[in-house]
């Protein structure tokens, strides 16, 4: 085996080793000697959690860069991210720290914004904190306490309803009432059943109402009558409307009465005459006036009637006379 061949083998082997170390270094990705290309943006968080240099930056789940530095800035954790060139992050994107798994490493997830303006070198991302497990469990603890309190209240309310041995609860009272009034309740129920039977067999007014067609028929008839009445009323109204139109146009007596000037004048004259007649009557002028104002006629009438009475009395004295006889006498 020549010495040159050995030298070549050793050289190759050594180069292989160096290449492998380089490959491992690249695969495990911690940019110390060779920075990842791209621009750098920062994001401040209250708590960086387990974020460390070399962790991924993802947008919509796709790796777009890595954390190149973590530092403390005025009590807040600041992560410096190196974003691959060509990946644009809208200005209003939001960065959150997410967990890749329960025990796994964290990564920064960027929710894409809608702004037209993209972040440039050195810009800062807005961030939103995500609750970690400790906070979540603390909240859960509070909730458990509240739920326990709720159930305590419920059990207390149930105790109040059921009542203790010495305390009268609602259920206990109800029970006592039912026990005391058992007879009455049974009677009431029996009566109810009787009523229900009667209804079922069609007895009584309600029963008939339910079972008999007659009531329905008569109701239907009433309905029909109403309908015809309504039709007649319609006709009547139509006629009335016609009359009104005629009156308005001055046709017929009432039309003339209302709309004719001459008629109005005549009516006025008649009214005047009537006024005069009435005045004369009041003053006792004329036959009618005297009849109303003078009582002579009354006295004369009274005297005539007295005479007639006397005559009939005289007739009665002349013996029993039949009604026919009187009638005959009166006639002949």
């Amino acid at each position: 085996m020549s010495n040159t061949l050995n030298a070549a083998r050793v050289g190759l082997f050594f180069i292989l080793g160096v290449v492998l170390i380089w490959v491992v270094y690249q695969a495990l990705g911690e940019g110390v000697f060779f920075r990842e290309d791209g621009y750098r943006v920062t994001a401040q968080f209250d708590d960086l959690k387990q974020l460390k240099v070399g962790d991924e930056v993802r947008m919509a789940g796709v790796r777009i860069g890595s954390i190149s530095e973590t530092r403390l800035v005025r009590g807040r954790g600041e992560a410096v991210m190196t974003i691959q060139p060509g990946v644009d992050i809208p200005e209003d994107s939001v960065a959150t720290i997410s967990m890749a798994g329960l025990l796994g490493s964290n990564f920064i997830g960027i929710r894409v914004g809608e702004s037209e303006v993209n972040l440039a070198e050195g810009d800062s991302l807005t961030t939103r904190s995500t609750p970690d497990f400790n906070e979540a469990f603390a909240t859960l603890g509070d909730m458990t306490e509240r739920v326990e309190g709720f159930f305590d209240d419920i059990s207390r309310a149930i105790a109040e309803i059921t009542g203790d041995e010495d305390d009268d609860g609602l259920v206990r009272n109800l029970n006592a009432m039912v026990t005391e009034n058992r007879e009455n309740l049974r009677e009431t129920l029996e009566n109810l059943r009787g009523v229900s039977d009667a209804l079922a067999t069609g007895e009584g007014t309600l029963g008939k109402l339910i079972h008999d067609d007659e009531a329905y028929e008569s109701l239907m008839n009433i309905g029909r009558d109403f309908e015809s009445t309504a039709a007649a009323a319609n006709e009547l109204f139509a006629d009335l409307r016609e009359i009104v139109t005629q009156v308005k146009s001055g046709e017929g007596t009432i039309g003339a009465l209302l709309y004719d000037e001459d008629t109005a004048g005549e009516i006025r004259r008649i009214a005047r005459n009537l006024g005069e007649v009435s005045d004369k009557l009041a003053a006792g002028e004329g036959t009618l006036g005297r009849l109303l104002a003078d009582d002579t006629l009354y006295h004369d009438l009274q005297a005539v009637l007295q005479k007639a009475e006397r005559t009939i009395d005289g007739l009665g004295d002349q013996g029993p006379i039949t009604a026919v006889g009187i009638t005959a006498n009166a006639l002949f």
Binding site: F13, F14, L16, G17, V18, L20, I21, V23, V24
Partner: peptide, 13 residues
């Protein structure tokens, strides 16, 4: 000293 890292990284991978 030259060969140990090479052997070790190979062993790793």
């Amino acid at each position: 000293l030259i060969m140990m890292p090479v052997l070790t990284i190979c062993a790793n991978l």
